[in-house]
């Protein structure tokens, strides 16, 4: 069961990653990326890393990708004529079927040759919130604080750039 779930998630992750790169429509690409994030969260869950899986969905799929979509939609507003790249349901069905068949083939091969490693039994205690917090706030406290400062600096920098208003004639900052 776990192996089958793993192969399905892995194939889905690769398929959506390819779909994201190959798709001509930006909104479709963004949605493919969301699916990719969710399938990777599923992979984390199979590794018993509950915290990582949930944070992956909260931060990437839930917040960052919504912002991406927001920007893409805003940019697309003027382009009414070519707003949609024709996408048909049959392609979607074909992709899903292909994923299932490919996963089954991989599952068959892996089942015969024992390619997949066993999950270590202490993984159940490593991936919990308590375990992550314990390490993060003791051994890696310095790195954690540095990252926090870096992110704060980035936010302040982004605000500075966003509030810079250029004078349309000279290109210099208006006071």
């Amino acid at each position: 069961m776990e192996i089958y779930a793993f192969i399905s998630f892995a194939v889905l992750a690769i398929a959506t990653a390819l779909g994201m790169v190959l798709n001509k429509n930006t909104v479709n690409s963004a949605l493919m990326l969301v699916l990719n994030m969710v399938s990777i969260a599923g992979l984390y869950l199979l590794l018993q890393a509950q915290f990582l899986a949930l944070i992956q969905i909260v931060v990437y799929a839930g917040a960052i990708m919504v912002l991406f979509l927001f920007v893409i939609m805003l940019l697309n507003v003027d382009d009414d004529e070519h707003l949609f790249d024709r996408f048909r349901v049959k392609y979607l069905i074909v992709t899903l079927l292909a994923v299932v068949v490919f996963a089954q083939i991989l599952y068959g091969i892996a089942g015969v040759t024992d390619l997949l490693p066993e999950l270590s039994s202490d993984m159940t205690t490593v991936g919990t919130v308590e375990a992550v917090a314990e390490v993060l706030y003791t051994d890696y406290l310095f790195a954690f604080q540095i990252t926090a400062i870096l992110l704060t600096a980035a936010v302040v920098g982004a605000l500075m750039i966003a509030q810079f208003k250029a004078d349309p004639e000279t290109g210099e900052q208006e006071s």
Binding site: I55, T128, V129
Partner: peptide, 29 residues
């Protein structure tokens, strides 16, 4: 589950897509 509060937040944050995509895919201002 050990992180069910996070699970709630994760699910809530995915709910935005429905409304956003509905708005975009209708092709109406």
């Amino acid at each position: 589950i050990n992180a069910s509060v996070l699970y709630l937040l994760a699910i809530a944050s995915l709910g935005v897509y429905g409304v956003t995509l509905a708005g975009w895919s209708s092709n109406s201002k």
